[in-house]
Amino acid sequence: MKTKNTKEALLVLFEKNKGRFFSGEEIAETLSVSRAAVWKAVKSLREDGYAIEALKGKGYSLSPDTDIVSAQGMAKYLKSDLDLDLVVFDEVTSTNTLLKERAAAGAQEGTVIIANSQTGGKGRMGRSFYSPLNTGLYISILLRPDSMPAQEALKITTMSAVAACRAIETVLLPEDERPQIKWVNDIFYHGKKVVGILTEASMSMENGNLEYAVPGIGFNVYTPEGGFPDELKEIAGAILPDRVPDAKNRIAAEFLNHFFAIYRSKDHGDYAAEYKKRSLVLGKNVDVIPTGGGKTRRAKVLDITEDCGLLVEFKDGTKEVLSSGEVSVRPEK
């Protein structure tokens, strides 16, 4: 067995048995490798940040408090029928950029790239997405929808938003506040943005349908050391105030479980009703910011349609269903 495979197999063993000690001899026999290979794999995992305790006479144990996302760690929570190709990186420029490159090269639907940090994370309208190491979780999924018109790409973003809310709730206490959705792509918790979603796609020029779509989802799981940058501290927040064992693996796996349950169900289920129920903007006055710039207009949100469009009424009495752009909620003067 190669060193890399030994490391991966050891992580599977540890993730399934957090807190349990295994002797070097027991691990070597279980994995059919040498004691030296076990030691090298343990050393490599420690270098990756895994807290592995070693006690004389007891062996090695992965700390129950460990919270590092990995394919092996997610496996405990992922539904067995998802059939995904998971790739986990410590750091990338952008999970969306990397996955779009693989999509263009022919990667199949269900390819998922996950990273612990991004050096060039992307937000909507050309903005960057702050993606520091060890505190966030960044996921991109490759989809190849069957006959989905490009104008319906909004559905992918809104499905992602509902799945993200459900995933967050798996690490919250029953009495905790519920996450809400600010149309179209942000998740707010305790009044702060904790998740951002950016869906990018390629369209067929022949029929106008999507060739592929890549929704990218960034979770602020914890507050970065030293806090968020000055330009973000008023808006950005974290899902959890303190470290929670295995929170990242659970959030990532449950997001994928819920997203594909919606995406693969007939007519995508009734997720739109849940999207509307979780709305942060319904009934409120907002600033409507057009895609590509333009004049911001004040409007009141009247409804969210079955396609998750935003029905607004402007000050002059005209009504419009928005399917692009974004809205900003600010206190009335």
Rank of each mutant, 00 (worst) to 15 (best):
E47H: 03
V92A: 03
E8W: 10
T93G: 14
G227T: 05
I304F: 00
P224Q: 08
A75Q: 05
G120H: 06
S32P: 01
L322P: 02
K300R: 15
I156S: 11
L31D: 10
K43G: 00
L31T: 08
S32K: 10
C308D: 04
N17M: 15
A273F: 06
G59C: 09
L322G: 01
V312N: 07
E206K: 11
I141V: 13
Q72N: 10
I304K: 07
S128V: 08
N257Y: 01
H268R: 13
K248S: 12
P245N: 04
L173T: 00
S44W: 09
A247D: 12
A201N: 13
G123D: 03
A236W: 04
L198D: 05
C165P: 01
Q151H: 15
I217W: 11
D65K: 01
L55E: 12
S265Q: 14
V162R: 00
G136F: 04
G208Y: 13
I156G: 14
C165A: 02
G106Q: 09
D81H: 03
F314L: 03
G126L: 05
A150F: 11
G283V: 06
I141R: 10
Y271W: 12
G216T: 12
E306N: 11
T30A: 12
I262F: 15
N249Q: 08
G309V: 04
T135C: 07
I235L: 09
V12S: 15
D307L: 10
D230C: 03
E313F: 04
V281P: 06
A167G: 06
I27N: 05
